[in-house]
Amino acid sequence: MQKNVTIDINGQPHRQAVEPRLLLVHFLREVAGLTGTHIGCETSLCGACTVLLDGRAVKSCTVLAVQADGRSVTTVEGLAQGDKLHALQEGFWEEHGLQCGFCTPGMLMCSHDLLANHPTPTSADIREAINGNVCRCTGYQNIVNAVKNASRKMAKRVSARAGAR
């Protein structure tokens, strides 16, 4: 049995007949060819597969593709605007918030959700927010620094835009 789904991924519609049991993460990686979203556990425990579903962070290994039908997904590939990196990407780069990089897309998307709802988090807020995302390399300290770095940048940009108005 196959079901037709249409999922908007990073602004592009992807239409495909899929098995009802197909995971969203496999749709992203195998159907849409977007392999930036990683599979670290397939049990929603490591967070490597975190994407935004209608703007909220979800673990795409525990969402079925059919559940995402008609909805919009943002993956790590959709963060940058052309050549312009997202503040979070800059933050992770500047603060050495990644080593092997495997957890990074999930960390970025999870932090994206945090900053969207809580633009100036404390270290403790950040640590709490990313506690469903596992990093084995960094000890998290530079990830916390990276999210703070992004938060500062985004606040500056917001105030610059407000000033310009």
């Binding site: 392999t35 930036g36 050495h96």
Partner: peptide, 21 residues
């Protein structure tokens, strides 16, 4: 120095083995 590796890793454009087809 910021890492040369990072641009591909923070944009999801690197290739781990399971990304290859």
């Amino acid at each position: 120095l910021k890492r040369k590796e990072d641009p591909r890793l923070i944009q999801g454009t690197s290739h781990y083995t399971d990304d290859l087809k």
